[in-house]
């Protein structure tokens, strides 16, 4: 079975995001970019399936600007076998919407015929939490989102999901789309020798036009603004003072 993992290049999760003064977006110039953390987890899961003999090839795909090559190289260094880069924008400020990403991924799926797609649950830049579900709809496949455990069992996958009430386990037909939640695994670091080896692994470059997919956004960004800032509070010296303050504020 082949496993396909879509990986997104996003601002590193440690970077403090700054909204541009003119309200056109956030400042992405000269900031550290990394693989979306949920996608690292997805790549790790795919590699583990291969190591367990349940998958035979791991293919990673990224859609966006040319620089997403670096993200794909990271995935290759972790242990993915092959990469596909779909260039769909030339400005780093252009975000390709989940619907367009899902349409492109559906085309890749048609070509590659994977038995499983493991995506991240959410991209930490747009916080959409949508692409996996959308891809699954477009393909008419089953979906198992927010996964904290995945077990391949013949032509089914048994997936435990993190839901509001706790945990839910479902069994889905393969091929399926799984989206990775934080506790699915702890992704490995790429070692230096593997980073070197990854440079020689195949990375195919395509464009959105090659797949005939229109990536025009459906949502026009009218403006991007700073969230309301909280007034700095005070430090209290003791538990007694805290209780007094909370009573004064009517909080208890």
């Amino acid at each position: 079975m082949k496993v396909l993992v879509p990986v997104k290049r996003v601002i590193d999760y440690n970077v403090k995001v700054r909204v541009k003064a003119d309200g056109t977006g956030v400042d992405l110039a000269n900031v550290k970019m990394s693989m979306n953390p949920f996608d690292e987890i997805a790549v790790e899961e795919a590699i583990r399936l291969k190591e367990a003999g349940k998958a035979d090839e791991v293919v990673v795909v990224s859609i966006g600007v040319k620089q997403a090559q670096e993200t794909l190289r990271t995935a290759l260094a972790m242990g993915a076998d092959r990469a596909i880069l779909i260039i769909a924008a030339d400005d780093v400020n252009t975000d390709i919407e989940p619907l367009a990403v899902a349409k492109l991924l559906a085309k890749v799926v048609e070509e590659e015929q994977p038995g499983l797609v493991v995506a991240g649950k959410q991209a930490i830049d747009n916080d959409m939490n949508a692409t996996g579900q959308m891809l699954s709809a477009l393909l008419g496949w089953s979906q198992a989102t927010f996964a904290s455990e995945v077990d391949i069992d013949g032509d089914k996958a048994v997936v435990t999901r993190e839901v509001d009430g706790g945990l839910q386990t479902i069994k889905v037909n393969l091929p399926a789309i799984v989206t990775a939640d934080l506790r699915l695994n702890e992704p490995r670091y790429a070692t230096l020798p593997n980073i070197m080896k990854a440079k020689k692994k195949p990375l195919d470059e395509k464009t959105a036009a090659d797949y005939g997919v229109d990536v025009t956004p459906r949502l026009e960004v009218v403006k991007t603004s700073e969230p309301a800032v909280r007034q700095a509070g005070i430090k209290v010296e003791s538990v007694d003072e805290l209780v007094t303050k909370l009573k004064e504020a009517g909080a208890i």
Partner: peptide, 29 residues
């Protein structure tokens, strides 16, 4: 498209939603 986690309705086509873990608020039409 889907509009996830909308925090304000501006009009029938326009909505606010937090992005980047709430470090920015985007208004989309």
């Amino acid at each position: 498209m889907v509009l996830s986690d909308v925090t304000a309705v501006v009009d029938a086509d326009t909505f606010e939603r937090p992005i980047y873990a709430g470090n920015a608020i985007q208004t989309v039409k």
